Amino acid sequence: MIKYDKGTLRMRNLAVIDIGGTSIKFGAWVDEKLVTMDSEPTPDNLDDFYDVLKIKVEKIKNIYGDISGVAISSPGAVNKSAGRIDGASAIPYIHGFPIFDKLEALFGLPVSVENDANCAALAEVAYGAGKDNQNILFLVLGTGVGGAIIINRKIFHGSHLYGGEFGFMQVNDHETLSEACSPVNLARKYNEITDEDLTGKEVFDLADQGNQLAHDLREKMLESLAVAIYNLQYSYDPEKFILGGGVSNNPRLLPLLREKIQQVTARVSIADIEPKVELCKFRSDANLYGAVVDFLQEHE
């Protein structure tokens, strides 16, 4: 692995990359500030993937001069000790081989790679809703439910790299948390019954307009999420939970969820800690910010 002069790291610039299933975002960390640049469609093969990354990093070098490293947010179970990306994602060709070495050779620079949800959590700890906290749990409500565990302001990966994969938890009626609490699955359940084609946000809003089915489905979703948060509070005992994902933009989510958490906590008479839940600060650039934090933690 390429080594870096740690003593001058904060005085240098970084290229920053957020690898997604449909597009790859690029930015630069310059004078301790993130400068977002542009994005490219995610290629369907490894050779083109390497070409896109190399061209973009060279462009960043040309614009900002001395680049000291490349910070990367990636899907999949990032195995830092083995220098590869395990698990599976929408980009199958990046998995299962020592890609860290390939990327460092491609750029001729030190590289850091971290899972995208973990990067989003690191961004919140460094600059967002968790900046004053040591220990948080980060939950992302999207197509499924993902997240991250932060202990002492660093990612806890777990023994099998499944730390923060809250979506695998079983909740009601043998559903996983992803099945029970994803906005995508909220919409799917409603549409299967009504034969409509609504989004999760539209179903969420219908519940406020008096639609009984939407209300009942939303209540079940919030109940499952509140129970999961309660259980995680008394398992990991974080200072707070931070919620991300598209549904976090809905102003009704937080007050409804807090009310449900109060009800769940009240069922256990000896429970004297009510989980504290806040919304994330960062949206589209969270993974880029977090990739920088990961690089600084890894190379300092």
Rank of each mutant, 00 (worst) to 15 (best):
F166Q: 00
F49V: 10
I17L: 11
A228T: 01
E202R: 15
V184A: 14
G245H: 07
Y236S: 01
R258H: 10
H174P: 00
N172V: 11
A126I: 02
N135E: 00
D44S: 13
I193G: 02
D197H: 15
K56P: 04
N211C: 12
G246T: 09
V292Q: 08
P92Y: 03
V171I: 15
P183E: 05
F138Q: 00
E32K: 15
R252K: 14
V140P: 06
N135K: 12
L139Q: 02
Y162S: 11
G96R: 04
Y236T: 00
D38A: 15
T42R: 05
N13P: 08
K131P: 03
V264R: 00
Y50I: 07
A123F: 06
E165P: 01
V171H: 01
R10N: 14
E202I: 11
I63V: 11
P275M: 08
I60H: 04
V111S: 03
G76T: 05
T36Y: 11
I193M: 13
L122G: 04
K61L: 02
S224R: 01
G244H: 07
D195G: 12
G130C: 06
M169I: 09
L103I: 11
F168N: 12
I149M: 13
Q134N: 15
A71K: 07
Q134C: 09
H215Q: 13
L137V: 12
K54F: 11
I72D: 02
A207P: 06
N231R: 09
V113W: 02
E104T: 07
L225Q: 00
V268N: 10
V171F: 02
S284N: 14
L279A: 09
L46C: 07
L46E: 00
P251C: 14
K56G: 03
I63E: 15
A77F: 09
A129P: 07
I63A: 11
A120T: 10
Y64G: 09
P183I: 03
V113E: 03
R84Y: 10
E104N: 07
G158S: 10
P251D: 15
A187F: 08
I72M: 03
E196P: 01
A15F: 03
V52K: 06
S235G: 08
A226G: 01
N115M: 13
V57A: 00
I24L: 04
E274Q: 15
S89P: 10
D208S: 15
L106F: 02
I19M: 04
L256V: 03
G7P: 01
P238F: 12
M169G: 05
N152I: 10
I72Y: 00
I270K: 12
E219T: 14
S182C: 08
G65L: 08
Y64H: 15
A123Q: 06
G147N: 08
D51Y: 10
L103V: 07
L137E: 06
A271C: 07
I149H: 00
N135P: 03
D86M: 13
S89G: 14
D132K: 13
G27E: 02
Q209A: 09
F168K: 04
G20R: 06
I24F: 06
E124Q: 09
G146W: 00
L288D: 04
D51A: 13
Y230H: 10
A121S: 11
I242D: 01
D38L: 12
I193N: 04
V78I: 10
K56F: 14
L137C: 13
